[in-house]
Design a binder for these strands. Structure first.
Length: 822
RNA sequence: GCGGGAGUGGCAGAGAGGACAAAUGCGCCAGACUCAGACUCUGGUGCCUUAGUGGCUACGAAGGUUCGAAUCCUUCCUCCCGCACCA
């Protein structure tokens, strides 16, 4: 790349390093709470520090955030812009084991590398507020919150059917299973295991989590994803009687109650065996055994299957006796874990009925045709008119839902209720690299929480990897005393899901060095909520739900005053390789940010990243476009080497102020790409001499994207302060004059026309004569044209004596002057 | 299957009822500079036609609303992303 060196690239890298050091030295990005200033909390989703270092997606994410932080800072806000590392977790543990080093060392190295690379990008973080989740100073407070939640009854331990990833060798939260696969292993089917695990009662807040979505300025699709994930549905619990005992079942379709021909209970239902008769036991056991050997994924694709329990249920409305089956398609965790089956009006029940030759009873007739149970090929699930439903016959099914529900409630046979798809958050993990759960098991006292004064429960460093959870085999860790009776006890060896760590880290930034409490109220209240949160969409139904839950729970413990942590969320787009595919090593389309910084400078990379497309859209890497970004920066530098400080024309003043106005608005709304276009256009119109206001103003706008070179140019202009903390230019609306734009347009059009003719006649013009209609004479400026074409230019209007050998003047039209070229 | 988003020039991507043959960048072409190249600068870049004109065809496809549509409506096609037996 020697050619780049000739253009001053070497200078670029030196300049960048110099200003990064100057910023650090002057600590200009350090902030304190200051009630006299308006605060702004700009936050990016903190990274998981992998050994691979920063990837382009990180660079993109942080550039978006840094531009915004710089913008708000220059606007006079007290800007909190912190960084931290989500440094616990399975990938580090696995990578460390593979590399034969301790996860702690592996992670420390990775973090050091990240910090260095982020410095190189010129990101304006307040590094004093660094938060590292794997440090005991941090995870101590995870344990603190765990105990608080436990005290509040929001943490419980329960045996249930849970998701198990055989590759991770641990259980997973519901949110971490994507289409039956582990979120970290796309090729690994999740298995169902029955284990006793720790859960957090996120469902306690299901309704509020759903309701408050409407308050949030988030991308619509993220809100929808959360809405679907929470999955609220209205229905009714109806009490069926089985073997003389009440068994409530949940349904959203009480209008079909007269069509129930059998019941299906989940194979995972904890009380399943109560229903199985001695006669049916062998068959049931065989069925359950078969189910156990299939993964959740296979289960999804499997045909509906079941087996008779031997028991019968009594329909409380019809008093009919229907058989109870066990089915593989009924979820134990949703509703009541058992369904009333209405094969005529539910596709799943229909398939099940067909397979086991169970009766089908039509109770809703469509308005346009007549159903016959014998000839039906699929369930009729739409609305219609009730039939075979005793006194409800003839009622519209939609109305019948209400009527029958009311009737059931009145008869005390059931109760209207609401159900959610959201399940409680399974937080325990059978792995080493995480926060130890601060619980002790005592033979006498049972489950005993570690007392707060004994926190943190330190994660032991000396452990043996390789055989399951290293904590479980670590005697020194496991063997302890009961906090209550002081007798022999065992420690909980499970660690917390790392999403626990990230559920409150944004609060810790506000008071990261506090060793008496997770944070003090005043600080957290000053900075929160986060004003803008920037990150990818992949956390829509994981981190973003957990953090919202955490915030609400802490609020109810009087530790916070806010209801929502992130009122405004910005999702950046995905950055793909130049081939359009996700960047991956195996595809060989990875572009490394550090390489690009070395080749073009950090300013260029930043500028390129946000100029390509709207930052919320997916884009492909483009090797040629970054060259273009680099060229533009070079042009700016060259211009600043030559420009004279003086006066700007009213025309430039107009353009400058208009640009400032629109640029500010674009940045505010994350339309960085459009802001850059306006900046380029302004730059193109700048002349050899411009006013201080215009020159410095331009530089300030530009500095959001290219802070290093702008800082350098700013100083070369004689400034002793930092441009990074300079005041944002204010647009003077009075100076914006639309006439100038008209002039520009007219002149541009005229230039094009002249060029066109020159091309046709194919010779250099000696003189250009322009005949305009009198009204428009002020639109055109001969000097500018003379400069552009380097020949004599004469502009005339209605001048009889004018030089016009070919009588062109008569062709002059409004907006279209006539021309004669010699 | 359900839900969401998107389809614009050689490419990336603006535009969201008139100022649109469509910003900006990249690419490409021509010219200037140069011994030459790179860099830089200037102009051009849908098709046909022309001393700056006029015409035609275009914004996934087909219809429709309107004096007027890339922009609004309907249907269809394609792609992307979520959820996926939630009773």
């Amino acid at each position: 790349m020697p050619k780049k060196k000739e253009n001053g690239l070497v200078g670029f890298l030196e300049i960048e390093k110099k200003w990064q050091q100057e910023w650090e030295k002057a600590k200009i990005f350090r902030v304190k709470e200051d009630k006299s200033k308006k605060k702004f909390y700009c936050l990016e989703m903190f990274p998981y520090p992998s050994g691979e270092g920063l990837h382009m997606g990180h660079a993109f994410n942080y550039t978006i955030g840094d531009v915004y932080a710089r913008f708000k800072r220059m606007q006079g806000f007290n800007v909190l812009y912190p960084m931290g590392y989500d440094s616990f977790g399975l990938p580090a543990e696995n990578a460390a084991i593979k590399a034969g080093i301790h996860p702690k060392i592996y992670t420390d190295r990775a973090i050091k590398n990240f910090i260095e690379q982020q410095h190189k990008l010129g990101l304006s973080y307040d590094w004093d507020r660094l938060v590292i989740t794997k440090d005991p100073e941090y995870y101590k407070w995870n344990q603190f919150f765990f105990l608080k939640l436990y005290e509040k009854g929001l943490v419980y331990r329960k045996k249930s059917a849970v998701n198990w990833c055989p590759k991770c060798q641990t259980v997973l939260a519901n949110e971490q299973v994507h289409s039956g696969k582990c979120w970290r292993h796309e090729d690994t089917d999740v298995e169902i295991k029955h284990l006793e695990q720790w859960f957090i009662k996120t469902t306690e807040y299901a309704d509020e989590l759903l309701r408050d979505l409407s308050k949030l300025n988030w991308p619509e699709r993220i809100k929808l994803m959360q809405e679907n994930w929470i999955g609220k549905s209205h229905g009714i619990n109806i009490n069926f009687t089985i073997n003389g005992k009440p068994w409530p079942i949940f349904t959203t379709r009480p209008d079909t109650i007269y069509g129930v021909t059998f019941m299906v209970i989940s194979a995972q239902h904890p009380k399943l065996m109560e229903l199985v008769t001695a006669k049916q036991k062998p068959q049931v056991e065989a069925f359950l055994k078969k189910l156990k050997s299939v993964s959740e994924k296979e289960l999804e694709e499997m045909e509906k299957e079941g087996v008779f329990t031997g028991s019968y249920a009594i329909n409380p409305i019809t008093k009919e006796k229907v058989p109870v089956y066990i089915g593989n398609f009924v979820l134990a965790e949703y509703g009541s874990g058992m369904v009333m089956a209405v094969p005529a009006h539910d596709q799943r029940d229909f398939e099940f009925a067909k397979k086991y030759k169970l009766p089908i009873k039509v109770v809703i007739q469509p308005k346009d045709k007549k159903l016959d149970a014998k000839t039906m090929r699929e369930a009729f699930v739409e609305e219609g008119i009730l039939v075979n439903s005793s006194k409800f016959d003839g009622i519209d099914s939609k109305i019948a839902i209400e009527k029958i529900s009311d009737f059931i409630e009145k008869q005390k046979l059931g109760k209207k209720t609401i159900n959610y798809k959201l399940r409680d958050w399974l937080v325990s993990r059978q792995r080493y690299w995480g926060t130890p759960i601060p619980i002790v098991y005592c033979d006498k006292c049972g489950i005993v929480p570690v007392s707060e004064s004994e926190l943190p429960v330190l994660l032991p460093e000396k452990v043996e990897f390789g055989k399951g959870n290293p904590l479980a085999t670590n005697k020194a860790f496991v063997e302890t005393r009961c906090p209550k009776c002081k007798g022999k006890a065992r420690r909980e060896t499970d660690t917390m899901d790392t999403f626990f760590d990230s559920s409150w880290y944004f609060l810790r930034y506000c008071d990261n060095k506090n060793n008496k409490a997770p944070f003090i109220k005043e600080k957290v209240e000053y900075w929160n909520p986060v004003d803008v949160y920037i990150g990818g969409a992949e956390h829509a139904t994981m981190h973003l739900i957990y953090a919202r839950f955490f915030t609400k729970a802490l609020r109810d413990m009087k530790m916070l005053k806010i209801d929502e942590p992130f009122p405004r969320l910005f999702n950046q787009g995905m950055l793909h390789g130049s081939d359009g595919f996700v960047m991956s090593k195996s595809r060989g389309n990875v572009v490394n940010p550090l390489d690009m910084i070395k080749k073009y400078s950090a300013d260029t990379l930043r500028f390129y990243l946000v100029s390509q497309a709207s930052p919320d859209k997916d884009t492909n890497w483009n090797d040629e476009a970054i060259e273009g970004s680099f060229r533009f920066i070079l042009r700016v530098v060259n211009y600043f080497n030559k420009v004279k400080k003086g006066k700007s024309s009213a025309k430039i003043e107009s353009k400058f102020n208009k640009t400032v106005k629109e640029f500010t608005d674009d940045i505010e709304n994350f339309r960085y790409n459009l802001a850059i276009i306006k900046l380029r256009e302004l730059f193109e119109s700048l002349g050899e001499e411009e006013s201080k206001e215009v020159i410095e103003g331009f530089l300030k706008l530009f500095s959001l994207f290219c802070p290093h070179i702008c800082e350098e140019l700013w100083h070369r202009l004689g400034n002793k302060t930092f441009i990074s903390t300079a005041q944002w230019p204010k647009a003077d609306e009075n100076k914006i004059k639309p006439e100038f734009e008209q002039q520009d347009k007219a002149l541009g059009q005229l230039k094009q026309d002249i060029n066109h003719i020159i091309k046709i006649v194919n010779k250099k013009p000696k003189a250009i004569y322009i005949y305009v209609i009198p009204k428009e004479i002020s639109l055109y400026d001969s000097k500018e044209l003379e400069k552009a074409f380097s020949c004599k230019v004469q502009i005339m209007a209605n001048n009889k004596a004018a030089y016009d050998p070919q009588n062109k003047a008569s062709r002059a039209k409004p907006g279209k002057p006539a021309l004669y070229i010699e």
